[in-house]
Design a protein around this nucleic acid. Structure first.
Lengths: 130, 130
DNA sequence: CTAGACCTTGCCGTCGATGTCAAGGCAAGG
DNA sequence: CCTTGCCTTGACATCGACGGCAAGGTCTAG
Protein backbone atom coordinates (compact mmCIF):
# COMPACT_ATOMS: atom_id res chain seq x y z
CA UNK A 1 0.00 0.00 0.00
CA UNK A 2 1.41 3.39 -1.00
CA UNK A 3 1.00 6.58 0.96
CA UNK A 4 -1.94 7.91 -1.05
CA UNK A 5 -3.98 4.79 -0.51
CA UNK A 6 -3.26 4.65 3.21
CA UNK A 7 -4.11 8.32 3.52
CA UNK A 8 -7.44 7.83 1.83
CA UNK A 9 -8.27 4.71 3.78
CA UNK A 10 -7.37 6.42 7.02
CA UNK A 11 -9.25 9.58 6.15
CA UNK A 12 -6.23 11.82 6.11
CA UNK A 13 -3.57 13.19 3.77
CA UNK A 14 -0.16 11.97 2.57
CA UNK A 15 1.31 15.14 4.02
CA UNK A 16 0.02 14.16 7.44
CA UNK A 17 1.34 10.62 7.19
CA UNK A 18 4.80 11.94 6.33
CA UNK A 19 4.55 14.21 9.32
CA UNK A 20 3.67 11.29 11.58
CA UNK A 21 6.73 9.55 10.24
CA UNK A 22 9.00 12.45 11.18
CA UNK A 23 7.49 12.15 14.65
CA UNK A 24 8.37 8.49 14.78
CA UNK A 25 4.79 7.28 14.89
CA UNK A 26 4.64 5.41 11.60
CA UNK A 27 7.45 3.50 9.92
CA UNK A 28 6.82 2.45 6.36
CA UNK A 29 9.25 0.42 4.35
CA UNK A 30 10.62 1.70 1.11
CA UNK A 31 10.26 0.12 -2.27
CA UNK A 32 13.13 0.12 -4.76
CA UNK A 33 12.09 3.48 -6.20
CA UNK A 34 12.01 5.13 -2.79
CA UNK A 35 8.23 5.09 -2.33
CA UNK A 36 6.87 4.49 1.15
CA UNK A 37 5.16 1.11 1.46
CA UNK A 38 2.76 0.41 4.30
CA UNK A 39 1.27 -2.88 5.44
CA UNK A 40 -2.23 -3.37 6.77
CA UNK A 41 -1.13 -3.05 10.38
CA UNK A 42 -0.18 0.57 9.78
CA UNK A 43 -3.79 1.36 8.91
CA UNK A 44 -4.74 0.30 12.38
CA UNK A 45 -1.97 2.43 13.82
CA UNK A 46 -3.06 5.49 11.91
CA UNK A 47 -6.62 4.98 13.03
CA UNK A 48 -5.41 4.85 16.62
CA UNK A 49 -3.47 8.07 16.13
CA UNK A 50 -6.45 9.84 14.60
CA UNK A 51 -8.79 8.66 17.33
CA UNK A 52 -6.52 9.89 20.09
CA UNK A 53 -5.83 13.18 18.34
CA UNK A 54 -9.57 13.71 18.08
CA UNK A 55 -9.86 13.31 21.83
CA UNK A 56 -7.30 16.04 22.35
CA UNK A 57 -4.06 14.09 22.76
CA UNK A 58 -0.84 15.43 21.34
CA UNK A 59 1.39 13.28 19.17
CA UNK A 60 3.80 12.86 22.08
CA UNK A 61 1.03 11.43 24.23
CA UNK A 62 0.09 9.04 21.49
CA UNK A 63 3.50 7.43 21.07
CA UNK A 64 3.01 4.84 23.85
CA UNK A 65 -0.27 3.70 22.36
CA UNK A 66 1.31 3.08 19.00
CA UNK A 67 4.18 1.21 20.66
CA UNK A 68 1.61 -0.89 22.49
CA UNK A 69 -0.19 -1.79 19.30
CA UNK A 70 3.11 -2.56 17.65
CA UNK A 71 4.01 -4.85 20.55
CA UNK A 72 1.16 -7.04 19.39
CA UNK A 73 -1.60 -6.02 21.75
CA UNK A 74 -5.10 -5.90 20.37
CA UNK A 75 -5.68 -2.53 22.01
CA UNK A 76 -3.23 0.32 22.32
CA UNK A 77 -4.59 1.09 25.76
CA UNK A 78 -3.45 -1.86 27.81
CA UNK A 79 0.28 -1.21 28.23
CA UNK A 80 1.50 0.49 31.40
CA UNK A 81 2.72 3.59 29.60
CA UNK A 82 -0.58 4.00 27.84
CA UNK A 83 -2.45 3.61 31.10
CA UNK A 84 -0.22 6.23 32.67
CA UNK A 85 -1.01 8.64 29.85
CA UNK A 86 -4.71 7.88 30.10
CA UNK A 87 -4.61 8.64 33.81
CA UNK A 88 -2.76 11.87 33.29
CA UNK A 89 -5.05 12.98 30.51
CA UNK A 90 -8.12 12.17 32.54
CA UNK A 91 -6.74 14.28 35.37
CA UNK A 92 -6.01 17.09 32.92
CA UNK A 93 -9.51 16.93 31.53
CA UNK A 94 -10.98 16.96 35.01
CA UNK A 95 -8.91 19.98 35.94
CA UNK A 96 -9.94 21.75 32.78
CA UNK A 97 -13.57 20.89 33.36
CA UNK A 98 -13.30 22.48 36.78
CA UNK A 99 -11.71 25.61 35.45
CA UNK A 100 -14.17 25.86 32.61
CA UNK A 101 -17.03 25.42 35.03
CA UNK A 102 -15.72 28.40 36.95
CA UNK A 103 -15.41 30.41 33.79
CA UNK A 104 -18.93 29.48 32.83
CA UNK A 105 -20.26 30.64 36.16
CA UNK A 106 -18.39 33.90 35.89
CA UNK A 107 -19.59 34.54 32.36
CA UNK A 108 -23.13 33.75 33.35
CA UNK A 109 -22.99 36.15 36.28
CA UNK A 110 -21.38 38.84 34.20
CA UNK A 111 -24.03 38.46 31.54
CA UNK A 112 -26.86 38.43 34.03
CA UNK A 113 -25.62 41.57 35.73
CA UNK A 114 -25.01 43.38 32.48
CA UNK A 115 -28.54 42.66 31.36
CA UNK A 116 -29.97 43.64 34.73
CA UNK A 117 -28.06 46.88 34.47
CA UNK A 118 -29.52 47.57 31.05
CA UNK A 119 -33.05 46.73 32.16
CA UNK A 120 -32.74 49.13 35.02
CA UNK A 121 -31.50 51.93 32.82
CA UNK A 122 -34.30 51.24 30.40
CA UNK A 123 -36.93 51.42 33.11
CA UNK A 124 -35.53 54.67 34.43
CA UNK A 125 -35.61 56.17 30.97
CA UNK A 126 -39.22 55.14 30.47
CA UNK A 127 -40.18 56.59 33.84
CA UNK A 128 -38.61 59.99 33.43
CA UNK A 129 -39.86 61.70 30.25
CA UNK A 130 -43.09 63.65 29.94
CA UNK B 1 2.63 57.49 33.39
CA UNK B 2 5.22 55.85 31.11
CA UNK B 3 4.95 52.38 29.70
CA UNK B 4 7.15 50.72 32.29
CA UNK B 5 5.11 52.01 35.17
CA UNK B 6 1.80 51.04 33.61
CA UNK B 7 3.17 47.60 32.82
CA UNK B 8 4.22 47.04 36.40
CA UNK B 9 1.01 48.42 37.84
CA UNK B 10 -1.03 46.24 35.52
CA UNK B 11 1.08 43.17 36.15
CA UNK B 12 2.35 42.80 32.61
CA UNK B 13 5.22 43.87 30.38
CA UNK B 14 5.92 46.90 28.18
CA UNK B 15 6.16 44.54 25.21
CA UNK B 16 2.62 43.38 25.86
CA UNK B 17 1.28 46.92 26.15
CA UNK B 18 2.87 47.84 22.83
CA UNK B 19 1.23 44.79 21.33
CA UNK B 20 -2.17 45.82 22.68
CA UNK B 21 -1.59 49.16 21.05
CA UNK B 22 -0.95 47.59 17.65
CA UNK B 23 -4.23 45.77 18.18
CA UNK B 24 -6.02 49.04 18.80
CA UNK B 25 -6.87 48.28 22.42
CA UNK B 26 -4.83 50.96 24.12
CA UNK B 27 -4.03 54.44 22.87
CA UNK B 28 -1.41 56.35 24.77
CA UNK B 29 -0.42 59.87 23.97
CA UNK B 30 3.15 60.73 23.11
CA UNK B 31 5.39 63.10 24.95
CA UNK B 32 7.77 65.39 23.07
CA UNK B 33 10.52 62.78 23.05
CA UNK B 34 8.26 60.12 21.60
CA UNK B 35 7.58 58.23 24.82
CA UNK B 36 4.15 56.73 25.34
CA UNK B 37 2.23 58.51 28.08
CA UNK B 38 -0.79 56.85 29.70
CA UNK B 39 -3.39 58.32 31.99
CA UNK B 40 -5.03 56.56 34.91
CA UNK B 41 -8.01 55.42 32.86
CA UNK B 42 -5.74 53.23 30.76
CA UNK B 43 -4.83 51.23 33.84
CA UNK B 44 -8.46 50.30 34.18
CA UNK B 45 -8.57 49.35 30.52
CA UNK B 46 -5.52 47.13 30.79
CA UNK B 47 -6.99 45.42 33.83
CA UNK B 48 -10.14 44.72 31.86
CA UNK B 49 -8.11 43.27 29.03
CA UNK B 50 -6.12 41.04 31.35
CA UNK B 51 -9.21 39.82 33.14
CA UNK B 52 -10.95 38.86 29.93
CA UNK B 53 -7.84 37.25 28.50
CA UNK B 54 -7.59 35.15 31.65
CA UNK B 55 -11.12 33.91 31.06
CA UNK B 56 -10.19 32.74 27.59
CA UNK B 57 -11.22 35.65 25.41
CA UNK B 58 -9.13 36.67 22.43
CA UNK B 59 -8.08 40.25 21.88
CA UNK B 60 -10.69 40.60 19.16
CA UNK B 61 -13.43 39.61 21.57
CA UNK B 62 -12.17 42.13 24.07
CA UNK B 63 -12.31 45.16 21.82
CA UNK B 64 -16.01 45.92 22.52
CA UNK B 65 -15.44 45.87 26.25
CA UNK B 66 -12.65 48.39 26.00
CA UNK B 67 -14.80 50.58 23.77
CA UNK B 68 -17.54 50.35 26.36
CA UNK B 69 -15.26 51.47 29.15
CA UNK B 70 -13.96 54.25 26.99
CA UNK B 71 -17.52 55.37 26.30
CA UNK B 72 -17.72 56.23 29.97
CA UNK B 73 -19.49 53.21 31.39
CA UNK B 74 -18.45 52.01 34.78
CA UNK B 75 -18.36 48.42 33.53
CA UNK B 76 -17.14 47.17 30.19
CA UNK B 77 -19.94 44.60 30.17
CA UNK B 78 -23.03 46.72 29.75
CA UNK B 79 -22.85 47.79 26.11
CA UNK B 80 -24.81 45.81 23.51
CA UNK B 81 -21.67 44.62 21.71
CA UNK B 82 -20.17 43.39 24.94
CA UNK B 83 -23.35 41.58 25.85
CA UNK B 84 -23.37 39.93 22.45
CA UNK B 85 -19.81 38.73 22.95
CA UNK B 86 -20.64 37.49 26.44
CA UNK B 87 -23.56 35.53 25.07
CA UNK B 88 -21.47 34.03 22.31
CA UNK B 89 -18.66 33.14 24.65
CA UNK B 90 -21.05 31.57 27.11
CA UNK B 91 -22.46 29.44 24.33
CA UNK B 92 -18.95 28.49 23.24
CA UNK B 93 -18.02 27.52 26.76
CA UNK B 94 -21.18 25.47 27.11
CA UNK B 95 -20.46 23.66 23.87
CA UNK B 96 -16.93 23.01 24.95
CA UNK B 97 -18.08 21.76 28.32
CA UNK B 98 -20.34 19.30 26.55
CA UNK B 99 -17.60 18.07 24.31
CA UNK B 100 -15.16 17.81 27.16
CA UNK B 101 -17.71 15.89 29.19
CA UNK B 102 -17.92 13.36 26.39
CA UNK B 103 -14.17 13.14 26.19
CA UNK B 104 -13.99 12.62 29.93
CA UNK B 105 -16.48 9.78 29.75
CA UNK B 106 -14.58 8.14 26.92
CA UNK B 107 -11.25 8.44 28.68
CA UNK B 108 -12.75 7.05 31.85
CA UNK B 109 -14.18 4.05 30.02
CA UNK B 110 -10.98 3.48 28.12
CA UNK B 111 -8.97 3.57 31.33
CA UNK B 112 -11.38 1.31 33.15
CA UNK B 113 -11.33 -1.26 30.39
CA UNK B 114 -7.57 -1.14 30.06
CA UNK B 115 -7.16 -1.79 33.75
CA UNK B 116 -9.75 -4.56 33.72
CA UNK B 117 -7.88 -6.12 30.84
CA UNK B 118 -4.64 -6.04 32.81
CA UNK B 119 -6.28 -7.46 35.92
CA UNK B 120 -7.65 -10.31 33.92
CA UNK B 121 -4.30 -11.12 32.37
CA UNK B 122 -2.71 -10.94 35.79
CA UNK B 123 -5.21 -13.37 37.26
CA UNK B 124 -4.75 -15.79 34.40
CA UNK B 125 -1.02 -15.69 34.89
CA UNK B 126 -1.37 -16.38 38.58
CA UNK B 127 -3.70 -19.27 37.91
CA UNK B 128 -1.56 -21.06 35.34
CA UNK B 129 1.93 -21.78 36.71
CA UNK B 130 2.81 -24.85 38.77
C1' DC C 1 6.84 10.34 -26.91
C1' DT C 2 3.99 12.28 -23.83
C1' DA C 3 0.45 13.23 -20.63
C1' DG C 4 -1.15 12.51 -16.14
C1' DA C 5 -1.18 10.64 -11.75
C1' DC C 6 1.48 9.12 -8.58
C1' DC C 7 5.66 9.67 -5.51
C1' DT C 8 10.00 12.24 -3.28
C1' DT C 9 12.35 16.11 -0.22
C1' DG C 10 12.40 20.66 1.58
C1' DC C 11 10.88 24.91 3.12
C1' DC C 12 7.58 28.65 4.28
C1' DG C 13 2.89 29.88 6.24
C1' DT C 14 -0.76 29.44 9.82
C1' DC C 15 -2.75 31.17 14.63
C1' DG C 16 -2.08 34.32 19.28
C1' DA C 17 0.04 36.48 22.76
C1' DT C 18 3.87 37.26 23.98
C1' DG C 19 9.55 36.71 24.84
C1' DT C 20 13.84 38.15 23.25
C1' DC C 21 17.37 40.42 20.92
C1' DA C 22 19.36 44.32 18.28
C1' DA C 23 20.47 49.02 17.64
C1' DG C 24 19.69 53.25 18.94
C1' DG C 25 17.61 57.83 21.36
C1' DC C 26 16.88 60.45 25.72
C1' DA C 27 17.43 61.97 30.65
C1' DA C 28 19.79 62.48 34.90
C1' DG C 29 23.51 61.88 38.25
C1' DG C 30 28.51 61.52 39.38
C1' DC D 1 31.94 62.56 29.53
C1' DC D 2 30.17 58.32 30.97
C1' DT D 3 27.16 55.21 32.92
C1' DT D 4 22.60 53.65 34.05
C1' DG D 5 18.06 53.01 33.08
C1' DC D 6 14.50 54.25 30.90
C1' DC D 7 12.35 54.53 26.15
C1' DT D 8 11.87 53.64 20.80
C1' DT D 9 11.12 50.50 16.45
C1' DG D 10 11.74 46.23 14.04
C1' DA D 11 12.23 41.65 13.37
C1' DC D 12 12.66 36.81 14.63
C1' DA D 13 11.23 32.71 17.86
C1' DT D 14 7.75 30.06 20.25
C1' DC D 15 4.11 25.83 20.09
C1' DG D 16 1.46 21.93 17.09
C1' DA D 17 -0.36 19.71 13.47
C1' DC D 18 -0.49 20.21 9.54
C1' DG D 19 -1.44 22.90 4.33
C1' DG D 20 0.64 24.37 0.21
C1' DC D 21 4.01 24.92 -3.14
C1' DA D 22 8.21 24.01 -5.80
C1' DA D 23 11.21 21.11 -8.35
C1' DG D 24 11.92 16.87 -9.65
C1' DG D 25 11.72 11.41 -10.07
C1' DT D 26 8.61 7.30 -11.46
C1' DC D 27 5.13 4.53 -13.53
C1' DT D 28 1.44 3.55 -16.76
C1' DA D 29 -1.56 4.11 -20.65
C1' DG D 30 -2.34 5.75 -25.17
Amino acid sequence: MLIGELAERAGTSPRTLRYYETQGLVRPQRSANGYRVYDEAELRVVHEIRALLAVGFGLDDIRPFVACLRAGHSSGDVCPDSVAVLRRKLAEVDAYLDRLGGVRRQLHDQLTQAIAHREERCLRRRGLPR
